[in-house]
Simulated assay, not measured.
Amino acid sequence: MVDIISNFPDSILCFILSFLPTKQVVATSVLSKRWKLLWRFVPSLDFHFGTPYIDYMDLYYFLNFCETYQPLHRLRFTSCGLYDFLSMETCIKTALKISGRLEHLDINLDWFVQLPSAVFSCKTLVVLKLAIIAPKNISLVDLPLLKILHLKSVRSFKCEDLKRFLSGCLNLEDLEVGSGLAPKSAANTSEKFPKLLKLKRANIHTHLVPLELIKNVEVLVTDRIYKDDLVFDLHNLLQLELTRFNLSTKCIIIVFNRKKKLVAEGNEALLPCPDPIPTCISLHLKTCRLNNFRGSVVHLQFAEYIMKNANYLRTMKFRYACNSLRRHDLTSHISSCMKSSDTCTLSFE
């Protein structure tokens, strides 16, 4: 058998190893004499703690040991539970210290681990993903190169904190804001949020983030859109995904243009959109995904409207939330609906 991997230069091998957990990377040192020291030059560290019983002193020494070798570009900490929160914070600080040019930081730990303030002034960061963690101090945020920001279940994170955070990373292209953030109030209007002119993708809960903030995106993933969010225009929209297609409460499902509204309230019939059809539907929309699709009158009217008027629609996806018999009937009905795009493909899950 030909050994193709051994013909790769060290730089390629280190790149491949950078996608593996650090424990597996270090284990490659037993393969051969060439591999014995190769792991030390992998520019990433990925720690996954499957147990709360962690020897933090060994981890601390390991991080300092790595400082003498390859500069760290990617760092990830993941844990299912922690007991020694202060030691974990110290390890994060140490990792930030040894990283000459940290570009990717992914931390998913525990509610009681406080994220060091040094994270928010790491000017080389391009990707920052935080989940199940509490920021310690975000009075100063300076992340000029940050392009991807994902915030999921961030403890004690208020709307004012989000505004301050976004003000320090104006070059964002991808934004995700999940649960854990305090809902926006009437006083927290969109005018107070910074303008994210380069934002292309957003995955948000609309009761947390004003839609005016993400009106220029090409890809929008959201749960629902409320009446208070009527002042926005999705003029660049190419892909739309509704994660919870639920009309049990009086809410606005989607508004494509402040003068041309496609509105659904409660269980009332869908209001027709006047001519001309909004350009974000007729000329731009290419992908539409409807999750939690139950096949109510409003659901079907919304789906039919999109398929009928989206001239460049390539993919229409449905994720059902009903029994198999109902799914069969819905699939037959939807498949027979008129589609203005000849290249549109229907997908059912």
Results as ranks from 00 to 15, higher is better:
residue 230 L to A: 05
residue 223 D to Q: 09
residue 174 D to L: 07
residue 250 K to N: 14
residue 163 K to S: 07
residue 158 K to V: 05
residue 217 V to I: 02
residue 44 S to L: 04
residue 88 M to H: 09
residue 56 Y to S: 09
residue 43 P to Y: 07
residue 334 I to D: 01
residue 320 Y to Q: 10
residue 113 V to A: 12
residue 210 P to T: 00
residue 83 Y to W: 01
residue 55 D to N: 15
residue 62 F to H: 10
residue 339 K to A: 08
residue 293 F to C: 09
residue 341 S to M: 00
residue 220 L to R: 10
residue 297 V to M: 13
residue 274 P to M: 06
residue 179 S to K: 00
residue 113 V to P: 10
residue 58 D to L: 14
residue 222 T to Q: 04
residue 106 D to C: 13
residue 67 E to A: 15
residue 307 M to R: 05
residue 91 C to K: 01
residue 29 S to V: 02
residue 151 L to P: 15
residue 58 D to V: 11
residue 172 L to I: 04
residue 132 I to D: 15
residue 43 P to K: 06
residue 9 P to V: 09
residue 236 N to P: 08
residue 104 H to A: 04
residue 326 R to S: 01
residue 178 G to M: 03
residue 100 G to D: 11
residue 9 P to Y: 07
residue 172 L to T: 05
residue 195 K to N: 05
residue 27 A to H: 02
residue 137 N to F: 10
residue 26 V to I: 14
residue 113 V to S: 10
residue 1 M to E: 10
residue 180 G to F: 07
residue 245 F to L: 10
residue 205 H to E: 09
residue 226 Y to S: 15
residue 173 E to P: 04
residue 251 C to Q: 08
residue 230 L to S: 08
residue 42 V to C: 12
residue 146 L to Y: 08
residue 337 C to A: 06
residue 323 N to T: 02
residue 55 D to Y: 09
residue 52 P to G: 02
residue 296 S to W: 05
residue 265 E to Y: 13
residue 248 S to G: 09
residue 219 V to D: 06
residue 341 S to E: 00
residue 131 A to K: 13
residue 247 L to C: 06
residue 125 L to A: 06
residue 113 V to W: 10
residue 199 L to F: 09
residue 328 H to R: 02
residue 332 S to R: 08
residue 182 A to T: 14
residue 54 I to M: 13
residue 256 F to E: 07
residue 12 I to V: 15
residue 40 R to N: 07
residue 289 R to H: 13
residue 305 Y to G: 06
residue 11 S to D: 14
residue 231 V to C: 06
residue 125 L to V: 01
residue 184 K to A: 11
residue 319 R to C: 15
residue 234 L to A: 14
residue 302 F to Y: 10
residue 56 Y to W: 15
residue 121 S to R: 12
residue 63 L to T: 09
residue 304 E to G: 15
residue 128 L to R: 07
residue 7 N to P: 00
residue 165 F to R: 01
